[in-house]
Amino acid sequence: MATVRLWDPLLRVCHWSFALVFFANYFINEEGEDWHQWLGYYAVGCLLVRLVWGFVGPPSARWADFWPTPARLAAHARALLRGQSFHRLGHSPIGALVMLLMLSCIAGLGLTGWLSQEVDALWGADWPMDLHSFLADALLALVCVHLLAAVVESLRLRENLPLSMLTGRRRLPDDH
């Protein structure tokens, strides 16, 4: 079975950093604690690196490679509804959409987390913390969708997709 190097080390470090920071800040650290704040800043730093890497990184990391256009999303949805194979080396269109939503939540968490520390500047407004909590819960839901999809697609494609995010290698589709 032929494999190809797909996920570069920087992309994998960002991915696993997001996972670890989210787990730590959602389940372990209390809001407002120093660790919560510093890990949040680290996640925003990873997000900025990932955004730039989407323009200058290798082809599989580039936004143009997997941007979920309406046509790509429709083709992927049609294939799923028909039970047809839809094997891409990189993110599937629906997977890319979920990934972009997760990155948006991370950006929103960074902004609202920072704003919630600047309460005096906002005259004691509660909305930054309320929005921060909502975004954290939304990200948890998206992470669950992401994990479930990784398991389902691994079974469907007979390929360990989470392992590919550890090793950086992915099995080539049969038609390559």
Rank of each mutant, 00 (worst) to 15 (best):
L111H: 11
D130T: 12
L140C: 11
A125I: 02
P68T: 02
S116G: 08
A138W: 13
W114M: 00
A71C: 01
L142A: 05
R78N: 09
H146V: 05
R88L: 14
L101W: 11
L135V: 05
S85D: 05
A79S: 09
C144W: 03
A141S: 10
L111P: 09
A107S: 03
S85V: 14
Q117R: 13
S60R: 13
V143R: 05
A96I: 02
A77Q: 05
S116T: 02
R62E: 02
H132F: 04
C144H: 05
L109D: 06
D65M: 11
A136G: 10
G110E: 03
W127M: 00
M102F: 08
A136W: 12
L122N: 03
L81W: 01
Q117E: 11
L100K: 04
W127F: 01
L73I: 06
A61R: 03
C144N: 07
W123R: 09
H87N: 11
D120I: 13
L111F: 14
P68N: 02
P70R: 02
P58K: 11
A74R: 11
H91G: 03
C105G: 04
H87K: 15
S116K: 10
A107W: 00
D126E: 15
M102L: 09
V56P: 02
A150P: 12
A71D: 00
L103I: 13
Q84D: 14
P58M: 10
S85A: 10
L140F: 12
L135R: 05
A150T: 15
R88Q: 13
A121V: 14
H76K: 15
L139R: 02
D137Y: 08
Q117C: 04
L148W: 03
S60L: 12
R82S: 13
A75R: 11
L135Q: 00
A79V: 12
F55V: 02
G108R: 01
P68W: 06
A136D: 09
R78Y: 09
H146R: 13
L103C: 10
S116D: 06
G90C: 14
A71S: 02
H76R: 13
A64T: 15
F66T: 15
F134A: 12
D126G: 10
A71K: 14
A75Q: 13
D65G: 07
R78H: 11
S85P: 01
G90L: 14
L89Y: 10
F134W: 13
H132A: 09
G108Y: 03
P128Y: 03
L139C: 07
A150I: 15
E118W: 03
L97N: 01
V143I: 15
A79I: 12
L139I: 06
W123E: 00
A136M: 14
R82N: 12
A61D: 02
A79P: 01
R62C: 00
L135D: 02
G113R: 04
R78L: 09
F66H: 15
R88M: 15
R78W: 10
L80M: 14
L142V: 02
C105A: 10
M129E: 02
A141Q: 09
W127D: 05
A107M: 00
P58C: 14
S104L: 09
A138I: 10
A79H: 08
V119C: 07
V119L: 10
D65C: 09
G113P: 08
C105P: 07
F134E: 12
F55D: 05
G124T: 03
G113F: 04
L73N: 05
L142G: 04
P68Q: 04
S60F: 13
A149F: 01
W127A: 00
V56Y: 01
L122D: 08
G57W: 07
L103H: 07
W127R: 05
A96V: 06
